[in-house]
Amino acid sequence: MEEKLFGDKKIVADIILAITLCAVALFVFLLFQLTGENGASVRVSVDGQSVAEYSLAIDGEYSLNGGTNILVIEDGEAYMKEADCPKQLCVKQGRVSKVGESIVCLENRVSVTVVGDGEILEVR
């Protein structure tokens, strides 16, 4: 039994829409990649307020936000070692090192952003 499912020419419009959106994603991705440079330090924000800044050149382990998250800096890269949230997304986000890259923990509203040498990252 043949069913006429999704109209007719509309499917072409759908495909064009999907391809256009893919192109937008690729463009934004390349923009971030090309403008990326190695950062000098990471800035920690809680609830949008900067609370601390740690140099990427110095290895260390830091407790953030009263212990909800544990940040590790190693070989010029930063990653979240532990978090008390159920989904552990920030832990899975892996290592960051390029300026502007960040690790975000939505549950605890903690964000760790890589910033450049002596540069103040644009904060909205």
Binding site: F29, D47, V104, R109, V123
Partner: peptide, 16 residues
């Protein structure tokens, strides 16, 4: 909420 534009990094994978 977090007053940071850095989260824009997630836009490409989220669009895809």
């Amino acid at each position: 909420v977090m007053s940071t534009g850095a989260i824009a990094y997630y836009i490409p994978p989220l669009i895809v």
